[in-house]
């Protein structure tokens, strides 16, 4: 399979899935933006109205955090099941096993473009005028996309080996939701070393904080860490795609016989 055929296939699978999903629901494509907005509404009600969080600009703080987190969490969750849910096709054709998680990742990323567009609109409506700092969003999106691809491929392999990983990944996303500062500010951790450790070992927390830095606080993110993360993710991506290629028959056997 040529690279062109590979991407043609990934794109076709992603677009067809999006169409099918839109057909299933009354509000169709609108769910792409309704769902993250509902999440924000729930979190806002709990943390602002009920628990009395009065941080300045809390709503936009929450929106930036939740909109970027949801891309990671939903995509990795879906990608985790992508191999086992395509057992019929995998048992019939010897094809690259990365194809299925990549199609899911692209599908979720198409959906995320609408979410990012909504984010920009909400920021402007709220009085956050675009600044030069906003250009930092491009490398941040690129690094988050790479992180999603690496985690999504890994999740697909793990679930293929043992279905139990699907439950653990779900739980892991809940853990990340609490540990990444989606609804609380990492800067509220007074101990500097704890805060640095959390940001260092949790790239999701780092990315969420960076998105807020460039969009809300006109600050430059930690470029050294961002570059380091980029290099690490490229290396991991090369490693995992090589592994999935080398062990593609083993993966097929796990999927077909499980």
């Amino acid at each position: 399979m040529t690279l062109k055929q590979y991407f043609n296939l990934v794109d076709t699978m992603a677009r067809l899935s999006l169409k099918a999903e839109a057909r299933r629901f009354y509000f169709g494509f609108w769910w792409w933006v309704i769902e993250p907005l509902l999440y924000v509404a729930v979190f806002y009600t709990v943390f602002y109205q009920l628990l009395g969080n009065r941080s300045p600009d809390f709503l936009m703080f929450l929106i930036v955090g939740k909109f970027t987190f949801i891309w990671f969490s939903k995509t990795v969750n879906y990608a985790g099941n992508s191999l086992v849910s395509n057992a019929g096709l995998i048992g019939r054709m010897d094809m690259p096993k990365t194809l299925f998680p990549m199609a899911v990742i692209l599908e979720c990323s198409y959906r995320q473009t609408a979410v990012f567009a909504l984010l920009v609109a909400l920021l402007i409506l709220d009085g956050h005028s675009p600044t030069a700092y906003w250009f930092w969003v491009v490398p941040l999106i690129l690094v988050e996309a790479l992180l999603i691809i690496v985690c999504g491929l890994l999740a697909a392999v793990l679930v293929c080996i043992k279905r139990d990983f699907a439950l653990l990944i779900n739980l892991g996303m809940l853990f990340l939701l609490f540990m990444s500062g989606v609804f609380w500010d990492l800067n509220s951790i007074t101990d500097e070393s704890t805060r640095s450790t959390l940001l260092f070992w949790n790239p999701v927390a780092f990315l969420l904080d960076s998105f807020r830095q460039v969009l809300l606080w006109q600050q430059v993110p930690n470029v050294r860490y961002l570059l380091g993360l980029l290099v690490l993710l490229i290396a991991l991506l090369a490693l995992i795609t090589f592994g999935m290629g080398r062990y593609r028959h083993y993966l097929a056997q796990r999927v077909v016989t499980a």
């Binding site: 699978m13 067809l16 899935s17 019929g88 096709l89």
Partner: peptide, 27 residues
């Protein structure tokens, strides 16, 4: 190539969409 029936279709897609996907899958 291996051809078997009833496997590999995506239930949410229409027959036409599944046919499109099958054709693209076959290169």
């Amino acid at each position: 190539a291996l051809l078997s029936l009833g496997l590999g279709f995506k239930n949410e897609l229409t027959g036409r969409e599944n046919a499109l996907l099958a054709a693209v899958l076959q290169g």
